[in-house]
Design a protein around this nucleic acid. Sequence first.
RNA 1: GCGCCUUUAGCUCAGUCGGUAGAGCAGCGGCCUUUUAAGCCGUUGGUCCCGGGUUCGAGUCCCGGAGGGCGCACCA
Length: 498
Amino acid sequence: MDELGKTEAALIAARRENLAALRSRGRDPFAQRRCDVDATAQELLERYAFLEPGQDAAAEAWSLAGRVLSKRTMGKTVFADLADRTGRIQVYVRRQDVGDDAFADWHDLDRGDFIAVRGYMFRSKVGELTLHVTAFSPIAKALRPLPDKWHGLQDIEKRYRQRYVDFVVNPDAREALMLRSRLIAEMRRFIDARGFYEAETPTLLHVAGGAAARPFVTHCNALDRQLQLRIATELNLKRLIVAGMERVYEIGRIFRNEGIDTTHNPEFTMLELYAAYWDVSDMLEFNEALVAHLVDFVTAGATDLRHGDTTISFARPFARIEYFDALARFSGGKYTRARLLDARQAAEVLGELGLPASPTHGHALDKIFERIAEPHLVAPTFVTGYPAVISPLAKRRSKDGEVVDRYELFCANMEISNAFTELNDPDDQRARFEAQVADRIAGDEEIPEPDWDFVRALEYGMPPTAGIGIGVDRLMMLLTDQRSVRDVLLFPMQRQHG
RNA sequence: GCGCCUUUAGCUCAGUCGGUAGAGCAGCGGCCUUUUAAGCCGUUGGUCCCGGGUUCGAGUCCCGGAGGGCGCACCA
């Protein structure tokens, strides 16, 4: 239990007195087990929208339950706002309707308490649809006071640390996360409808591979071995392609031991999806259809999405541009493919841009692209044809071995997805892992140890396959118009107090 | 990791030049049968983030620390 200030202690004591008063009259809120609910706030507001001020629908009684968000007592009547998962509805209680004893119970109800009510709908003189209460019972007590009813909870730190309070008083915050839930369900429906199997692969691994990132490390007592938390689901999902599942995906939690900021949380959600017999072009079509569908879903049929104070169009087709064309265009022709594909010249370019030296050629290319091209990629844009040196798991183009069949989708200056035709030649894969070992030794700590068993799996034969990874949290930021990844996460990572 | 900003009542915020810590809401008491951000009257409530220092005197100035926000760096 935390230490309480005197003011807060007094507020809690007052609520405990109210609890005791209710109990003394046989109205113990915590003795309640369940209650019948046959309507939600939203349903009633929609159903009775036709009522005129002063008019009622006394013939139809409804039961609902929720939390008291405010209480306005006026002598022998009380107005209160009741909130459930769908929204807020006003309720009205008269002493002459519920009787003296029950009316007295309202005195002991505090803002934040849960109640079950029964009554009928009417529209008040000032025009608000209201439930006229004929019976009610307290069903849970809030012992701690809720924040200011008008300003809500503004303290950003407290909002993330105490989401249970934030969501009660800041409905917008709760709704963004509830929308996220609906969007992920919709995403699953879209994928499932195309014949994919959802897989749940391990998060604890001996070697976390499939991406370039520092892993979290933990220890398994039973095995007395160090384990790592996964940084991608890629290698296991491709094992399932080898195994013959043909269409698999996972919407899973990924852990990367890296910085925390407005677009990075140490644990985040990634959709990875693999389809045998597709190539990167098939995947691009799928990707575009999926994103367009989700935009359609949130906007109820529109193609434009509000993003901060601008609008982004997701009308198909999205823009497409080749990786090296983008770099050339956004650098005014200065940074050509020939120059960037040469490791020494790429290092010089880093210097020209005032960026720190990179440990590897691939790292340098990433930094250059980030600086030169990303700031221009606001509208959804597929950047296609990535250099092989930064794509260790992708298949080379048949007519151009320095480039792989890969694209990334950018939007609002963020990378949203990454897809490629998967490398299925075990000998090529082994060679690329060996090259990565060299990069790792050269000082690129994000390069994982090679997963040699994955090469062994490929030796059993993997059909031609396309794969994609989508950063679900960033996609949710776009779809729910949030500036910070924390606002699309229920419980974002926070440093511990003390 | 570096820089800037920030932390005052349960909540939202003031606090001047260094001179006894304020308001609104919430709470408590009273009046009120269609109110609505907050009705009216009265009233309780403080580890000024923590620890040092300067000073007759620190919420205020200085140093150190903690949490948070933003930017940079890092990070697909």
